[in-house]
């Protein structure tokens, strides 16, 4: 084993906390001992460090803790065995939590798949236009064909005369889900059309022959009609 070079005071002092507990390896401990033999100030430091370390162990050994006696341990032993007798190998609460995490993860995955699937998904859809922005002047229009969840429906915006916002359209009440006019029109008519529209579904009519606008309420005409004209 290679002998360690003689240690100076600074390096010795840095090793004293471990030296006093016997936690240095032999080679380093011998070098520290050698320095301590020749250096009185370091020896004083080592003595103070050792005193503090021994104070801890001595205090613990000498202290009687009230309330800790054989009766406490007998009771502790019994209580542990009682609890263990009723304890399941795995806490049921953990299973509940795991199930909740699994459901949440599955939901997030599903939503993520719907949003980002290769054929477009929610992210690939044409954004819904602000109703009325692209078709001002007409009362009813078919919005751009979107790609909603089933590829078989489109959003149809119907402007109602009683709209009270600045565009002349409300929000939720004016969004109606309709099937694509060229796909399953009968079903679309049954489900989504207004009573005035043919039950067979709205015909694919050009915008020029779109149905006439609904009569505006005489009490409160929509603002867009008055401002636009």
């Amino acid at each position: 084993m290679r002998a360690l070079r003689e240690l100076g005071c600074r390096r010795t002092l840095g090793r004293l906390p471990l030296f006093v507990g016997g936690d240095l390896d032999d080679r380093v401990a011998r070098a520290v001992s050698a320095h301590l033999r020749s250096c009185q100030s370091c020896r004083r430091e080592a003595s103070a460090q050792l005193q503090a370390k021994n104070a801890l162990a001595d205090a613990v050994a000498a202290t009687v803790v009230p309330g800790v006696d054989e009766a406490l341990f007998v009771e502790l032993h019994q209580r542990v065995l009682e609890r263990v007798a009723t304890a399941a190998p795995t806490a049921p609460r953990q299973w509940g939590r795991r199930a909740a995490i699994a459901v949440a993860a599955g939901t997030l995955f599903g939503l993520g798949w719907l949003a980002a699937r290769p054929d477009g998904g929610l992210l690939g859809r044409t954004p819904i236009h602000a109703a009325g922005a692209a078709h001002r002047g007409s009362d009813s229009f078919a919005g751009p064909t979107l790609q909603p969840l089933g590829h078989d429906v489109m959003w149809r915006f119907v402007r109602h005369a009683e709209a009270s916002d600045s565009s002349g359209l409300g929000l939720m009440g004016r969004l109606m889900l309709r099937t694509l006019e060229d796909e399953e029109p009968a079903m679309a008519g049954d489900l989504f059309d207004e009573p005035s529209v043919s039950p067979a579904g709205p015909p694919a009519v050009p915008p020029s022959v779109a149905p006439a606008p609904a009569a505006p309420s005489s009490a409160a005409p929509p603002r867009h009609q008055t401002t636009r004209r």
Binding site: V60, V65, P66, G67, V68, L72, L76, R79, V80, R83, V84, A87, A88, P89, T90, A91
Partner: peptide
């Protein structure tokens, strides 16, 4: 006890440790 400094806490920790050990 030497870590926590309180008898009640040490007793509770010991008890819980054995239950976890068993599981």
């Amino acid at each position: 006890f030497h870590v926590l400094g309180r008898v009640e806490d040490a007793r509770d920790v010991t008890q819980e440790a054995f239950v976890r050990l068993f599981r």
